[in-house]
């Protein structure tokens, strides 16, 4: 639904891109207050080649962009999994991709919203500070995470990411704050090295969710492939609700990762993991805590 005072720019790929494209300057913040002729000269990189927006895209939109980026919507009418750095550092406004996107969607985003109707690749929402990212398809790895070598806590620092499909490995790696929801399945090492924030995966997860976690909470609503011994069983709860997302079924709650002195909370759905969790349930019973 388009608000009345929104200016919309529609971009169409002229030809199918063959190499990675760096579209970091195609944001409402950068378009704000500019004439269309200037916008057409926005720098884009096609692989290592510096070029301009109009070389790669046909663009339609108002002659002059509003000076407030909150009023600008940019629509990539043709997506591409080569389209990287979409919404880089954006603070206001909206970006919609009617197709796939590449790496680093919403990297260092500060506000506004991004919607990708297809799939996206790695590092979606990495180091995001605020704003909303919604991906209708699947995403790659390090969703809402940090870059290699950075301290835990340098990942996502705020905002919301919703993935309707599946996500890959290391969701939220090094996250400090914020909320990530994956409606499908997750890969390995979900929520590794997080120091805060909430991660909810409705489907299954790969190996070792919460590896290295120091704080925060991770909820896995489906099957877990393997659990680390450094998570101590804490309790058994009949249901859980996180940010309005309800799971009406029992969960086993673990504290960890004890090798890093972590006090994070890992919630694993009981029914899909009875083989793995039966033993822990008996541990709690031995303790005399009511199940």
């Amino acid at each position: 639904m388009i608000e009345l005072s929104t200016a919309t720019y529609s971009l169409y790929f002229k030809t199918k891109p063959m190499v990675l494209i760096d579209a970091r300057h195609l944001t409402p913040d950068e378009f704000a207050g500019k004439k269309l002729t200037v916008i057409k000269n926005t720098v884009i990189r096609e692989g290592g080649r510096k070029t301009s927006l109009s070389e790669l895209f046909d663009i339609e939109g108002p002659e002059v962009a509003p000076s407030d980026p909150a009023q600008i919507t940019i629509i990539f009418e043709t997506g591409s999994n080569k389209l990287c750095f979409i919404g880089y550092k954006m603070s206001k406004g909206k970006i919609i991709v009617k197709g796939d996107a590449g790496h680093l969607v919403g990297y260092k985003m500060k506000g506004g919203s991004i919607l990708v109707e297809g799939n996206a690749r790695d590092y979606v929402g990495a180091k995001m500070r605020d704003g909303t990212i919604e991906i209708r398809g699947n995403v790659g790895h390090r969703l809402g995470g940090k870059l290699l070598g950075e301290k835990p806590g340098k990942g996502m620092r705020g905002g919301t990411i919703i993935v309707h499909g599946n996500a890959g490995s290391e969701i939220g790696v090094g996250m400090e704050k914020g909320f990530i929801l994956v409606e499908g399945n997750a890969g390995n090492l979900t929520g590794s090295d997080i120091i805060g924030g909430s991660i909810v995966v409705k489907g299954d997860s790969g190996i070792y969710p919460g590896a290295g976690m120091i704080g925060g909470r991770i909820i896995i609503g489906g099957r877990v492939e393997a659990l680390l011994p450094s998570f101590y069983v804490d309790s058994f709860i009949p249901s859980i609700s996180v940010k309005g997302i309800k799971f009406d079924k029992p969960f086993m709650v673990f504290l960890g990762d004890v090798v890093v002195g972590g006090k994070g909370l890992l919630y694993l759905s009981y029914n899909e993991n009875t083989g793995l969790l039966e033993y822990y349930r008996s541990l709690i019973e031995e303790r005399g805590v009511e199940v």
Binding site: I207, A226, P229, S230, Y232
Partner: peptide, 23 residues
């Protein structure tokens, strides 16, 4: 196969005399 991380974690716990809950 593929479960080295678990064994390495358990060794780190054992070095520090932390309880390993799984048998």
């Amino acid at each position: 196969p593929g479960r080295d991380y678990e064994l390495l974690t358990a060794l780190r716990m054992a070095i520090r005399d932390l309880d390993i809950e799984a048998p």
